[in-house]
Amino acid sequence: MTADPLSDALALVRARCVITGGFIASGDWSVRFRPSAALKLKGLVRGRCWLLAAGRPPRLLTKGNVATFNRVESFVLCSDPAIPPVEEPEALRPGPGPLDRFGAPHDRNDRADETEQAVVAIGGHIDLDRSGDELLLSVLPRLTVLAGESAEADEVMRLLEQLLEERSAPRPGSNFAADQYAQLLLLQVLRAVLEHGSSSRPGWLTVLADPDLRPALTLMHTDPGRAWGLDELARASAMSRSRFATRFKQVSGQPPVAYLTRWRIRLAERALRETDTTVAALASELGYASESSFSHAFARTVGVSPGRYRRSVRTPAPGGDHPVSEDHAVSGAYAVSGAS
Rank of each mutant, 00 (worst) to 15 (best):
L272Q: 04
L146N: 07
A147L: 14
A11Y: 09
S168W: 12
A227Q: 10
R59Y: 05
S252K: 02
F69Y: 15
A236N: 07
H196R: 15
E134S: 10
P170W: 07
R48D: 10
S252I: 04
V66C: 09
P81V: 11
E274M: 05
R130F: 10
V120P: 00
R310I: 00
L230N: 14
C78A: 11
P224T: 11
I126T: 13
I265K: 02
A91Q: 07
S200I: 11
L267P: 00
E116S: 14
R16W: 05
A151E: 12
M1L: 12
D210T: 10
E165D: 14
L128P: 09
S292D: 11
A238I: 03
D8M: 06
A280Q: 07
R101P: 02
A335S: 15
D179G: 13
A329P: 00
S200Q: 15
L51S: 09
W263P: 00
P323W: 03
S290V: 04
L6N: 07
G287L: 03
L282S: 01
D133M: 12
W228T: 02
W263H: 11
A104P: 03
H296A: 15
R56I: 01
R243V: 08
L205R: 02
R314Q: 14
T246R: 13
S312W: 04
I126S: 02
Y288P: 00
E90I: 03
P89S: 13
A67C: 12
H196Y: 15
Q117W: 07
V76I: 14
G203I: 05
D154W: 03
P94F: 07
E152L: 08
L233I: 12
L217H: 00
F69C: 09
V18N: 08
R300P: 03
A299I: 00
L184M: 14
H328K: 01
R241W: 08
D154P: 00
G64P: 04
P211H: 13
E87Y: 06
A91N: 11
V139M: 09
S198P: 00
G338V: 12
A227M: 05
R262N: 13
R108E: 14
P256V: 05
P323S: 01
D276T: 14
G43D: 06
P81T: 03
D223N: 12
